[in-house]
Structures are given as C-alpha cells and as structure tokens.
Simulated scan of single mutants.
Amino acid sequence: MSKHRLFIFLLTFVAFISGLSLVSAQREIPALVKKVKPAVVVIYTYDSNGELLGQGSGFFVNAKGDVITNIHVLLGAYRGEVKTSQGESYFIKGVIGQDIEGDLVKIVLDISDKTFPYLRVCTSLPEDGERVVVIGHPLGLEQTVSDGIVSVVRYAPPLGQVIQITAPISPGSSGSPVVNMDGDVVGVVALMLGKGQSLNFAIPGEKIVNLKPRKIQALQEWTTVTGDEWLESAKGLFFSGLSILWEEDYEGALPYFEEAIKKNPDFAEAHYWLGWAYSMLGRHKEAIKVLKESIR
C-alpha cells in the first residue's frame, strides 16, 4: 500500500472512530437522564400563612427518602413539601443534617414504609473537562436537563472549594444534582455568576458524605435558629441579595451585597452582583469600580 493510500485509510479510520464516539456520547445522555430523573425532586416552601415562599431542587440520597438540597432553599420556610418526578408529594418532617459553610442540608420526609430511587454520591473531585449533567427545576420548569463540562475546581471564599461548570443553571436550580456520566453525584448546584450561564458553581459531593447526623429538628424551628446564624454570615447575606435581585429589585439587593463584602472583602461573587445591580440602576461609575474588585 502506498503512503498516500495509507494516509487516506488512517484518516478515514480516525473519522469513523470519532463518529462512533460522538454517536455513543449522544446516546449516553438520554440513558443517563432516564436513570437519574426519578431521584430528583422539586421543593416548595411556604410561609406561616400558607403562601408559596419559594422553590428549589433536591434529590434522594438513600432508599428511606432523605433529601439533599441547599440551606438557602429552605430559609424562612414555615413548612415545606417535596414533589417527586412521579407526581407524589410529601411534607418535610424536619432537618437531620447541615453544613452551614457548604450551604447543604439533609431533610427527612413525613413518610413510612416506602422506598425511593436514590443517587450515589462520589467523594472524589471531578477532573477539569469532565462531562456532567444537571437535572433540576429552574424558573419553575420541572425536570429540566442541561449538560456541560467541569471548567475547573477552585477555591472561592466564603464557599470554600467549589466546582465550576458550564451546564446552564437558573434560579430554582439550587439543590440540583450535578452528575457524572456514571450517574453519580459529584456536586450540588449552589449559585450562578452572570447571565451568560457559563459561570456556575456546585458544592462538591464530598461535603454531602461528611454531613454529621443530628437529632431531627422541625423545619420551622430549624429555619428560625439557622436563619439568624445564616443571615449574619457573608454567604447568607449574599444569597439573600441574590433572591431579591432575581425579583428585579436591584435597589433592595444593594445593602445585602454591600454588607456581605464588609464581612468578607474577598467575596468576588458579591462584588460582581453588586456591580450588576448598580449597572441595572444606571449607576455605571459605581458598577465599574465594584466589578474591577470582582476580578482583581
């Protein structure tokens, strides 16, 4: 065989293999979603008058039906309920584990004699460039699927170590599982930075495994005690500001971001969103000054 023909053969072979890999990858995601979706839930929270307070995402971590979500999803709730992908709803009985710094909480539901599909949690960090899938309930759209890659694992005060992903997320995605191509949870969606939906962050799965068991605490009692502690922290102030900003109350969000920065001057995300709020209010000089702080 001539060198020219050999080159053409090798080129064709490589293209063929690449095509098979692409087709295989395209087929993997639907199968993965089918496997993961039954364990993903939407969480609704209500105030003392029974009015809807907010919503977020979560997922089952064991057959008993214990659910993982973010602390900020439950704050201020008088009561809450979880809705499964099968349309079944269960009231939240209480909290049995939390990590204030990691913005994670484990809740137990008011159920008995029932088993649930659940997700395994991976304790090792994903690799940069690793493909991941997020299933959650952004903007009230239940069971929404997005995919992307791990951009990098970085340290981001005051959140600690976080996983930066490109999979799009939006308000309501908080608490969603970030799973690898084996269907194991590598992280929990915590926040997004910017509306380009490419700077999104998740808390590593290791923090789920390290949640210390605690005596069950009723949701109303827990949110009262934890809420005070949370709102005094830079992270709590930041998430409070975000929730107000997502309602397009830019003026109302300003003091929360400003106070968060006072407590932690290196909080880049708080600088960024403060700048964004200033920009939306037409206060461009202040916005530029603050945004410079977010990238220094």
Rank of each mutant, 00 (worst) to 15 (best):
P157N: 11
P157S: 09
P158T: 02
G160W: 15
I163D: 12
Q164P: 15
Q164A: 10
Q164H: 05
I165F: 12
A167V: 10
S170Y: 15
P171W: 00
P171F: 01
G172A: 04
G172P: 02
S173K: 03
S173Q: 04
P177A: 05
V178P: 01
V179D: 13
V185N: 06
V186M: 10
A190F: 00
M192E: 12
L193H: 06
G194A: 05
K195A: 12
G196Q: 08
G196A: 10
N200Y: 02
A202V: 10
I203G: 03
I203R: 05
I203K: 08
P204M: 07
P204N: 02
G205P: 09
I208K: 06
N210I: 08
L211Q: 08
K212V: 14
P213N: 12
I216Y: 13
I216C: 14
Q217K: 06
Q217N: 07
L219R: 02
E221G: 04
E221L: 04
W222A: 15
W222S: 12
T223W: 00
T224H: 12
T224A: 10
T224V: 05
T226F: 13
E229D: 08
W230I: 00
L231R: 06
G236A: 12
F238P: 10
F238E: 02
F239H: 00
I244M: 12
